[in-house]
Amino acid sequence: MRDFSYVRANSIEAARKAAALPGAMLLAGGTTLVDLAKCGVAQPETVVDITHLKGLDTISVDASHATLGALAKMSHVADHAGIKSHFPAVSEALWQAASAQLRNMATVGGNLMQRTRCPYFRDPSNFSACNKREPGSGCSAIGGVTRGHAVLGTSQACIAMYPGDLATALVAFDATVHLGQRVLKVDDFFLLPGDTPEREHDIRAGEMITAIEIPGSAAARRSTYLKVRDRQSYEFAAARAAVGLELEADGRTIRDLRVALGGVATKPWRARAVEEALKGKVLDEDTVRKASGLAMEGAVDHGANHYKIELAPRVVARAILKLGETA
């Protein structure tokens, strides 16, 4: 790891200013930043420690919305009673992410900013070609080991999967990211790789995530998060789905449905085609399984990740069916 200088920010303003300087990076939980600095991927000249800022770690929840301070820890949000009852998918996404220790360190703001786990991205000394790291250098993953790579939202330049669990739940429920002056929908905050895979977020120099806001809804209240992976725990997903469901008074007809996917896409992926296909329909297994296939519209595989195209719709279907069973 390159040497850097360390400053501890004592106000949001100071943090923003310090972070706007060239070579400066914010340090929240450090679980992405320190890791990538050791890999030689992140090379900060200055690390701006925001972990001692006061007031940015609050979690407030009521029926109409939840506000998560950017520095709220993943573990605290996961265990928060209000989140559990009003946004179960958010709590489940969080407690199934990483490990208990990492969740005690990692912040929700940092979580949105985490980088891909593409092994080529993470190993600059062995793989010099990576458009995300070095624009224009090429993509080592294409033609290489692609089992964990995305099938949705890919480009010629990059097929890296976005690994975060939380954001998958957030896009399902139309959450927004507060960046000081600007407030963006999570869906818009994350960018497709296109020709500029190095740009992953719509965030500008001098901006900092201060909070995440999630509007409450009946679908959010009846929601779940399903994560499928090789190992039972402490692993990123092969495929995952956040789903929220609201039924009509008849208890069978779908009034509102939210579906977002992860583990298969280059950014948190809202599956609106599935939602539209099922709204107004009676919830039954065949209909749900058929509609879930729509989640994969436009999917492109790179060999070893082909299984994701089969797997992801099943994860979506099972998540919806599970909600249907919980009357």
Binding site: Y6, R8, L27, G29, G30, T31, V34, D35, K38, C39, V47, D49, T51, S75, A98, S99, A100, Q101, L102, N104, M105
Partner: peptide, 25 residues
Amino acid sequence: HGQCGACTVHVDGERVLACLTLAAQ
């Protein structure tokens, strides 16, 4: 790199990984 848990310590009573924590922090 945060992948094994061998470095677990408590900071303010909570378990964290010492390998991804800067001493200065």
